[in-house]
Amino acid sequence: MTARTIVPVILSGGSGTRLWPMSRPEMPKQMLALTANETMLQLTAGRTQGERFAAPIVVANARHADLVEQQLADAGAIPQALILEPAGRNTAPAIALAAIAAGGGGDALLVMPSDHVIDDVPAFHAAIEAAMPLVSQGWLVTFGIAPDSPEIGYGWIQIGDALQPGVHRVARFVEKPPLDKAESMLASGDHAWNGGMFLFQADAYLEALAQFDPGILVATREAMDKARTEGTRIYPDATAFATSPDASIDYAVMEKAERVAVVPVAMGWNDVGSWDALHAISARDEVGNAHRSEGDGNVLAIDTRQCFVRSDGIRVSLVGVEDLIVVASGNDVLIMPRGRSQEVKKLIEAMKNDAAKKDAQAG
């Protein structure tokens, strides 16, 4: 790699409701130890420690400030800035806040979600190294995940002409596709999954916002100009930030800019977007069960196959069943067939509706 330092930007504002009941608004997915003894946030910060990387800039929900600080301190990853959003406005404004906090100049920003798995960190670092020469020329770079299935839950990237070894021009971004289109893209061999990770200079990103979505730039600059600072904590002005358009970086910038490149990489990536996804990457016994407990022997499975079982408290016992997801957290227990864990969002919606009805009746 070149000697240039890279500033990690860790996005930690999500709520992660697809992993209910363990993930909740007050304790979102990135704050949980789902795949290792460290939390997802700690693992993300750990991928970019060392002389190659500066201290991270973390963008998080203000309600999680204490939790984020404690987890990063425990991991030895003290941020240079903890930007606490007064409200969620999607990734484009969040990254703009970080770019402004970094000084808005030629520093390279490595933007990473805080709740993804990367098993092959050396491969990730090699992809970063491949991208840096173009980043230094003002290109906006994304990382394309080598696909292994016709996934309809991700956006895709069509890989265009080679710009230099390991780096290609983005031919186009593809929204989450129907199954037949995903199968066709997988078979073509020239598409990758969009993993939501980016590398670019702060000034290149802010200039792209000025061209393609200036409302975001105006709102975030004002929010940072009027921000309140407490140590490393930065509280952007809520009124100014609320005027920002709600837009993803893909929609606001990446799909519109001219000099956009992709580095295809196979690095053991997973967004852990459901209990099924976690089962797929978890260690399993000889009959396919994956179970983990945070208590003392509080999961027991007899004559049980291909189940995912997790409890952070109460005892969970299974006998003579297969292909189930069972997750117990606090007073809540989730039970559903494997393969249907994306439907947790239906439960969340039903619970919200039920709570609204009870509030209306009480009123």
Score class of each variant (00 low, 15 high):
residue 2 T to E: 13
residue 3 A to W: 03
residue 5 T to F: 07
residue 8 P to L: 09
residue 9 V to S: 00
residue 21 P to F: 04
residue 23 S to A: 14
residue 24 R to H: 09
residue 24 R to N: 08
residue 28 P to L: 04
residue 29 K to M: 05
residue 30 Q to M: 14
residue 33 A to T: 01
residue 40 M to W: 00
residue 41 L to D: 01
residue 45 A to M: 05
residue 47 R to K: 12
residue 51 E to L: 10
residue 54 A to C: 10
residue 54 A to Y: 08
residue 56 P to L: 05
residue 59 V to A: 06
residue 63 R to G: 12
residue 64 H to N: 14
residue 64 H to F: 13
residue 65 A to T: 11
residue 67 L to F: 11
residue 76 G to V: 06
residue 80 Q to F: 00
residue 80 Q to P: 00
residue 82 L to N: 07
residue 83 I to F: 03
residue 84 L to W: 01
residue 84 L to Y: 01
residue 84 L to P: 11
residue 85 E to L: 15
residue 89 R to L: 13
residue 90 N to L: 15
residue 91 T to G: 05
residue 95 I to F: 10
residue 96 A to K: 03
residue 97 L to Q: 07
residue 98 A to I: 10
residue 98 A to T: 09
residue 101 A to N: 04
residue 102 A to S: 15
residue 103 G to H: 00
residue 107 D to T: 00
residue 108 A to Q: 12
residue 111 V to M: 08
residue 115 D to Q: 05
residue 117 V to Q: 14
residue 119 D to G: 15
residue 121 V to I: 15
residue 123 A to S: 14
residue 128 I to N: 03
residue 135 V to N: 01
residue 135 V to W: 02
residue 139 W to D: 06
residue 154 Y to L: 14
residue 160 G to V: 05
residue 162 A to G: 05
residue 165 P to M: 12
residue 171 A to H: 12
residue 172 R to T: 10
residue 174 V to P: 14
residue 174 V to C: 12
residue 175 E to H: 11
residue 176 K to H: 02
residue 179 L to P: 09
residue 182 A to D: 07
residue 183 E to W: 01
residue 186 L to T: 04
residue 189 G to N: 02
residue 192 A to S: 09
residue 193 W to V: 01
residue 196 G to C: 07
residue 202 A to W: 03
residue 202 A to I: 06
residue 204 A to R: 01
residue 208 A to D: 12
residue 208 A to T: 10
residue 212 F to V: 08
residue 215 G to L: 05
residue 216 I to P: 07
residue 221 R to Y: 02
residue 223 A to W: 10
residue 227 A to S: 14
residue 227 A to M: 06
residue 229 T to G: 01
residue 236 P to W: 02
residue 238 A to S: 13
residue 239 T to A: 15
residue 240 A to I: 07
residue 246 D to I: 12
residue 251 Y to K: 03
residue 269 W to Q: 05
residue 270 N to V: 04
residue 276 D to A: 01
residue 295 G to E: 07
residue 298 N to Q: 12
residue 299 V to D: 11
residue 301 A to T: 11
residue 302 I to K: 13
residue 307 C to I: 01
residue 315 R to H: 10
residue 316 V to F: 07
residue 322 E to C: 06
residue 322 E to V: 03
residue 323 D to W: 05
residue 324 L to I: 12
residue 326 V to P: 09
residue 334 L to C: 04
residue 334 L to R: 05
residue 334 L to K: 03
residue 335 I to E: 09
residue 338 R to G: 07
residue 338 R to Q: 12
residue 351 M to N: 06
